[in-house]
Amino acid sequence: MKSFLLILTLLAGLFSVFLEGETPVFRVKMQNGGYFQVFENRDSLGILKGYWSNIIAPVCEDSVCYNVDILFKWNLLGDFVAYETPEKSPLTKLDHIPFTPADNQKLQSILTNHDLIFTGMPAEKLIVKTKKEGIDGYSGATVTTIKEEVIEGALYTCYTLWHIANGPVVDSIRSHTKKLMDDQMIQEMLKMNNSKAHYFLINSLSETQYKNHLPVILKLTLEGKGYFPKNAFEKIPSHLFEQQGLQEFLIKNYHEYSYYTQMAILKKLQGVRLSKPLLLSLIEQLDERNSGQNQRIVNLVIANENKELLKVLGEEIRLKEVNLNSEQREKLEGLGIL
């Protein structure tokens, strides 16, 4: 508890170095009242590339305290990228022993890792207290399960810096980046070539931006892994599905997507006037097993009220022996198709 309180007290004193001539874009408040200032990092052409902050934070290791003087860098998404320390003021471990190159390498990997156990623990649980023989007080031993994760003798340095690098600053950066989203920023995001950036993109674009950048978004859906294609289609504004270009794209690529992306596309197509070729290509996707996809395709064909297509639908159902449920069958029989 003693160490925990000490950390809280010291974090309250955390601050950024004031830099003449630079204007911070925002300040990040910590829960305990401390703050630091964040600056934009732009290249020579003025293009925003990321963010940085020069932070001075007091850290204590087993009652030995010192001021960490460190420069943090984040990318446009708020991901921590790297840190630098002044040559004359290196990070230190217990008893003011300076970090070795290996320690610095390990800290870098800690600060970019989101799968660590110790970062999710309350500070007071990081150590087990053992009573010191003959001494009025307790000494702390790092909890066994996290020993391998941290730098020996620098537990609270690792803990404090991880929470600064990956704390509220992340959301602040993301909000700031989102506000600045323009064509140039979109290009930067695309250049980042990772799905986190692409997710950020589909969650940030305006309707107009979707319209203007639709081809590139559709290209991303073909390349994206996991549920990115599904989530991207869910984000594309519904009215854009009326576009001939998008419908042609679907005719060509629908079958390439996973079942769940296909389901998301079909959901988006509800209420949209669809071209005859697209409906024909969807009818081809019917399979014999009763499924949500079959239901949605059948509903789309019925909703588009084209007798010729309804006939094709009936033929496909008979040919593939599509297994409809009773409600679908009744509906189609009512329309005279089956």
Binding site: D79, D115, N193, N194, S195, K196, K225, G226
Partner: peptide, 13 residues
């Protein structure tokens, strides 16, 4: 929010 485990969500490609 405990023991969620490392999974490939958004960040990796």
């Amino acid at each position: 929010d405990y023991n969620l485990g490392g999974t490939l969500m958004e960040g990796e490609k």
